[in-house]
């Protein structure tokens, strides 16, 4: 019941990830952060098998940061997505494939456009305007289909995110303990305070 959500707008990309760390039906932690920032303008959110996720994310993070240090310039979101996909694809046909699903949010400072990549554990990658992973797909993609436009402003984006998290609270049988929300724009990655204490019940 891990939730990953991504929404792009006019000049920003919002990534939300559930705060619950679960093992089976048990919640081990209610303040988990399932995201890693890879460089100044890309953020990766991950879900999947317990050990694989953090291991893979930190491996990617280290390599992207190494690139930035060696070359004194950051990879663009597309270039990062290409690297992540190829690493995942390489692992897929090895002895120990990673079981990790990813959302890659970024801001391309040359094109001055936000970008979002949907990548699953098979290393299928697609550039999308909005995305979700896991059960959130079934609940949120229809909402996003209806309300999303490519040029929505930040307030509108947050409003749609609120609709999504409300719907998830309403319909998911297990509490996912709210979401961590991060925004990527021309100024880089920043975490947002996201008030989520309102109880929402199914009708």
């Amino acid at each position: 019941m891990e939730v990953l959500l991504g929404i792009t707008g006019k000049d920003y990309c919002i990534i939300a990830a559930s705060k619950a760390a679960m093992r089976g039906a048990t919640i081990l932690k209610a303040s988990d952060d399932k995201t890693r920032s890879l460089n100044k303008n890309t953020l990766m959110a991950y879900s999947g098998e317990a050990g694989d996720t953090v291991n893979f994310a930190e491996y990617i993070q280290a390599n992207i940061q190494l690139y930035s240090m060696r070359n004194a310039s950051d990879l663009s979101p597309y270039e990062v997505s290409s690297f992540v996909r190829s690493e995942l694809a390489k692992a897929l046909r090895s002895r120990n494939p990673y079981n990790v699903n990813l959302l890659l949010g970024g801001f391309d400072s040359i094109k001055e456009k936000p970008e979002l990549y949907w990548i699953d554990y098979l290393a299928s990658s697609a550039k999308v305007p909005y995305a979700a992973h896991g059960y959130a797909q079934y609940y949120c993609l229809s909402l996003l289909d209806k309300h999303h436009h490519p040029d929505i402003d930040f307030e509108q984006g947050m409003k749609i995110l609120r609709m999504c998290t409300d719907e998830l609270k309403r319909r998911l049988p297990i509490d996912f303990k709210g979401v961590v929300v991060k925004v990527i724009d021309k100024d880089g990655v920043r975490e947002l305070e996201y008030i989520d204490d309102k109880q929402i019940l199914a009708p």
Binding site: W118, D120, A126, K127, V128, Q137, L141
Partner: peptide
């Protein structure tokens, strides 16, 4: 289309 079983993920693939 790009899908995962019955779910459509992208319509620009």
């Amino acid at each position: 289309r790009l899908g995962l079983q019955a779910l459509t993920v992208s319509n620009d693939f």
